[in-house]
């Protein structure tokens, strides 16, 4: 290597390092991709919140839907509740997974705040939660008509999240649905 070029080595090293560090600034260290993307929604045998009827996987798949993990002890769930109601009113099917909660408190919550859910799966022990890779609430899974998980959003769903990330995916899945 000519000695002239050797002088530029520190500069080149600095630029490479700077590029990596700059990229790191905009990465979210808490971001954790779901291990279940493009995998089927796990099997489960649980009950429905309102009437305690048995509920399993086949009862809740068949059309694209959102699966929202919520609980009355989860404060952020209260924040996203009105927006979920709005989404449900606009025709998006939403199933609830009532995660490690008390049935009575959960029923009261739906009575007081409104019920955006098609049905609520009672996951009192968090077993479905573990199968889904849930580690907190709220989390929302976008599941297509074949019961395949297409996306997971951790945290509150608001208008921005829906518009920027969920709605485009939702439209894509719905479009696949109409063209067999």
């Amino acid at each position: 290597m000519p000695p002239r070029l050797k002088l530029f080595l520190p500069l080149i090293l600095f630029l490479v390092l700077a590029a990596f560090l700059y990229r790191g600034l905009s990465l979210d260290p808490m971001a954790m991709p779901s291990a279940l993307i493009d995998r089927p929604l796990p099997e489960f045998r649980l009950t429905e919140l309102a009437d305690n009827r048995p509920l399993e996987r086949d009862d809740v798949i068949g059309e694209p839907a959102l699966f929202n993990v919520w609980a009355t002890w989860c404060i952020s769930c209260r924040v996203e509740h009105p927006y979920l109601q709005q989404l449900a009113d606009s025709g998006v099917p939403i199933y609830g997974i009532n995660y490690k909660d008390e049935d009575e408190a959960a029923r009261r919550w739906l009575q007081d705040l409104g019920n955006p859910y098609r049905a609520n799966i009672v996951d009192r022990e968090g077993t479905l939660g573990v199968d889904l890779g849930v580690y907190g609430a709220p989390e929302t899974y976008l599941v297509d008509a074949d019961g395949i998980i297409r996306y997971r959003h951790v945290g509150v769903i608001d208008e921005r999240v829906w518009r920027d990330t969920l709605e485009p995916l939702w439209r894509e899945i719905a479009a696949l649905e109409s063209t067999p």
Binding site: M32, P33, S34, A35, L36, V130, D131, L132, G133, Y135
Partner: peptide
């Protein structure tokens, strides 16, 4: 564990 929560 990895099947549910990833290599993470």
């Amino acid at each position: 564990m990895v099947a549910r929560y990833g290599e993470f």
